[in-house]
Write a protein that binds this DNA or RNA. Structure first.
Length: 813
DNA sequence: CGTACTAGTCTTTTT
DNA sequence: GACTAGTACG
């Protein structure tokens, strides 16, 4: 019995076909990681391929780690020698070695979105681009798209001829690249671009990597963009042992430049390619799978496949429409708690998925209220928080004095009385002499224009020099501590009475422990590599598998994961699919959203709950949204609750115009040009839909279910509710990077309460207490729960509430 | 130079 | 609603 016996026929074919180009079309849950890991094992064990000759590219560091681990289990040795990493990390490793050939310093820094924006701003100022007319954002995304397509500034300029705005972007692009070069920095897109450039300009370097990576595998191939494809094409060009794995139905990163043609046209580029389809789904129940299939079928641009499963039907999909987002969140939290109580599911088996990060807030509040452990993935990245970026900027300055962005970030943090004017003068001086900002600082006393401010600059330079000289004998931890001590960064935070100072200090502590962990994991930890690792972490990388918490994340972050119990929240037209895509005149945009829905549905192994709200606050505006078209595409037979009956007819359909999907396909553009319809709801607020998108939904629905598919506009019952009691602020906390401050307090309290007899509450049964939002009330009961004291209070105004002492912050009156 | 307030924008998704 | 950039003022 060998390890390969457990594979199905198609998986075996994927594993045993080791030479030449291979395209594996792997449907959701079809065991593609299994196939990939076994393939690597097979290469090493049966074909005697050296692990060093294998390159596997994954999408996230987390996926890379998992792959390594699984190969290790199969082979038992050598897996640490396989090069498994993301596109970006792969490129950094190559560039660290060879980028000097392109005129960069090998210790270049990597700019994140914030840094980029800063540069773009400078560029706009310099080129006198009016950012009201042409937004930084637009310029940035134009540059990013250009890089994804491997278009250089010069080429961009040529293409922009005759177009005023494009011409300005071209100028900005050119200037931006010049600045990056001057600062010895690369942005995310450059990492790929420059590697391709390096390979093209240096055939010897390319060949050495071609010889090294004789077997190349790429996971999540449907999400590669043009530059990534080119990179892979170059690397695989000599031996052509390229195996790509993907699912066109799960392509959800078009906004990031992903080119779905890469997978759809693979066979055209590699005519000798062997195509293998993995269609048996091992993950989900029949009902879940049926729903997913029904939804994705509405997409036109896809390779046909039919996922099937051996599994039982399973339970029906649950569907609930609520009046408000509050009710929705409340229900989900209750439902999770119930499943836990009845032993149906543990917390770690549940996940709540939503379209936008902003939707996590309401859910977090409810989860905290009910004491359910959870972890939010994403939102504001830990490493893009102000305080973290400040500390990192110190490290960057110490590491690479040419990084002007970093130097300018910290020159007056903490306050040293160095203002904008001084910085400007120094920059002018630097520009004249063509030296870096930092080098200009060193010559501060020679800059005539800044006068007496020069005195303030000197101590800064001396300090940085001192840090640099300590670099040799300090480890990372000591260095960071020294920075905090010398600059008084934490002291300043402690003295300021801003609300979030404490959070910030905690975040800094978290950074320190990350640095310590990094040093433990790496024998010869050095500053540059630490900074580089930090720059390339994804949110999902921080999720630990074994902490038994409900995971809250966007649908995008959920790709590649699976859970027994999945909640799809906010399933409303306007939220998901997003308003932007509904009104877009490109029908492909809604198709991408549909793929996202497909990803969401197929995350569920056993149980799927779909929820939505009639009323929802989005960006400070109350919106009334109908049930998502994607829900309507699920056969009603699979749902436990019927879709709501339409109450307001908002649009009269003309069946003659569109008798079915084919006729829609036949004349999409005329349809789309007929503008938008506005639908007034009973309450204030309007919702717009593109007519085409609207009609399409309608027709698909009719065709499948023979029902009137009118958009539903229920008049929401607006119940008077107390406003949210707390705003969860995300903060890093010990081993749990993204639990909220309030949850952290609960934890502290419960730990403290265990040792100190419990009188620490300061109030007891029968006492009158005051709550920040609920006002005054009487304590009825205090019970010690598993995490904290549960206090029951009857408030004078809002009635009885049961809450956790640690976070309710009740005061005796 | 630093602070406090105001106005405007934003988000759909991220390596 | 929340965050940020820009501005007016001390």
């Amino acid at each position: 019995m060998s390890i390969y016996d457990t594979l199905n026929e198609q998986q075996k074919k994927a594993v045993f076909t080791t030479t030449g180009p291979v395209l594996i079309l792997a449907g959701a849950g079809s065991g593609k990681t299994r196939a990939l890991t076994h393939r690597v094992a097979y290469l090493i064990e049966e074909e005697g391929v050296s692990p060093t000759n294998i390159l596997a590219i994954t999408f996230t560091n987390k996926a890379a780690g998992e792959m390594k681990e699984r190969v290790n289990q199969l082979v038992g040795f050598g897996s640490e020698q396989i090069w498994v990493s993301t596109f970006h990390s792969t490129c950094v490793r190559i560039l660290r070695r060879y980028i000097d050939r392109l005129g960069f310093d090998n210790n270049f820094t990597i700019y994140d979105t914030d840094d980029q924006k800063g540069i773009i701003k400078e560029v706009c100022k310099k080129l006198e681009i009016d950012t009201k007319m042409l937004k930084e954002r637009t310029i940035m995304s134009a540059i990013s798209s250009a890089k994804d397509e491997l278009i250089s500034p010069t080429e961009y300029e040529m293409q922009a001829l005759g177009d005023y705005n494009a011409g300005r972007i071209a100028k900005a692009y050119k200037e931006y690249q010049a600045t990056l070069r001057k600062n010895n920095a690369l942005d995310f897109d450059d990492l790929i671009f420059k590697t391709v450039e390096l390979f093209k300009a240096n055939p010897d370097v390319l060949e050495s990597y071609q010889n090294r990576f004789r077997y190349i595998m790429v996971d999540e191939y449907q999400d590669t963009n043009t530059s990534q494809f080119e990179l892979i094409r170059l690397l695989a060009d000599k031996y052509r042992n390229l195996c790509v794995v993907g699912d066109d139905d799960q392509s959800i990163y078009k906004f990031r430049g992903a080119n779905i043609r890469n997978i759809l046209d693979f066979e055209k580029v590699y005519t000798e390619a062997c195509v293998i389809k993995l269609e048996q789904n091992y993950r989900s129940t029949q009902n879940v799978l049926d729903a997913a299939n029904a939804v994705i079928q509405n997409n036109v641009a896809r390779k046909n496949k039919a996922l099937w499963t051996d599994k039982k039907d399973g339970s029906l999909l649950h569907f609930h429409q609520f009046d408000t987002a509050y009710d929705e969140a409340e229900y989900i939290a209750d439902n999770v708690r119930e499943k836990k109580r009845e032993d149906i599911a543990d917390y770690g088996e549940c996940a709540v998925l939503y379209r936008t990060n902003a939707q996590s807030r309401m859910l977090e509040e409810r989860f905290i209220m009910k004491g359910i452990p959870y972890q939010v993935v994403g939102g504001v990245n830990f490493y893009s928080r102000k305080e973290i970026k400040d500390i990192l900027a110190y490290l960057k300055t110490i590491d690479n004095g040419r990084d002007d962005v970093a130097v300018k970030r910290i020159i007056n943090v903490p306050k040293r009385g160095i203002g904008a004017t001084t910085i400007l003068r120094v920059q002018e001086y630097a520009n004249e002499r063509n030296i870096s900002f930092y080098d200009a600082l060193r010559e501060a006393d020679q800059i005539m224009t800044i006068g007496k401010s020069a005195v303030k600059l000197k101590p800064f330079v001396t300090m940085i020099q001192a840090f640099r000289s300590k670099l040799e004998f300090f480890n990372l931890e000591d260095l960071i501590k020294d920075i905090l001590e010398t600059t008084g960064y934490v002291r300043e935070l402690e003295n300021s009475d801003t609300e979030d100072a404490e959070d910030r200090i905690e975040n800094i502590d978290e950074l320190l422990s990350k640095a310590v962990a990094y040093e433990k994991a790496h024998e010869e930890a050095n500053l540059s590599e630490f900074l580089e690792e930090v720059a390339l972490v994804a949110d999902i990388d921080q999720v630990e598998g074994d902490n038994n918490k409900v995971l809250l994340m966007t649908l995008h972050s959920a790709k590649g994961l699976e859970f027994s119990h999945v909640y799809l929240a906010g399933m409303e037209d306007g939220v998901f699919p997003s308003y932007m895509t509904i009104v877009s005149d490109n029908p492909e945009d809604v198709e991408e959203e549909r793929r996202l829905a497909y990803v969401g549905i197929t995350r569920a192994k056993d149980d799927l709950t779909i929820t939505c709200a009639r009323q929802r606050m989005i960006r400070g505006e109350t919106q009334y949204n109908p049930v998502s078209r994607f829900v309507k595409e699920i056969p009603p037979l699979l749902l436990d609750h019927k879709l709501p009956e339409p109450k307001y007819k908002s649009y009269e359909a003309h069946d003659d115009d569109f008798s079915g999907r084919n006729s829609f396909k036949a004349k999409p553009y005329e349809a789309r040009q007929s503008g938008t319809i506005q639908t007034k709801t009973a309450q204030a607020g309007t919702v717009q839909f593109s007519e085409a998108g609207y009609r399409k939904t309608e027709n698909v629905y009719k065709r499948q279910f023979g029902k009137d598919a009118d958009t539903i506009f229920d008049k929401p019952k607006v119940s008077a509710r107390p406003k949210a009691v707390l705003k969860p602020k995300r903060t890093a906390y010990e081993d749990q990077p993204y639990i909220t401050r309030a949850a952290a307090q609960i934890k502290e309290q419960s730990q403290g309460a265990a040792s100190s007899s419990g009188s620490s509450l300061g109030y007891g049964q029968g006492d009158r207490v005051k709550h920040l939002k609920y006002g005054e009330g009487t304590v009825m009961k205090i019970e010690s729960g598993p995490r904290d004291y549960q206090v029951t209070v009857v408030f004078d105004e809002v009635g009885q509430k049961i809450m956790y002492a640690g976070f309710a912050k009740l005061k005796k009156v």
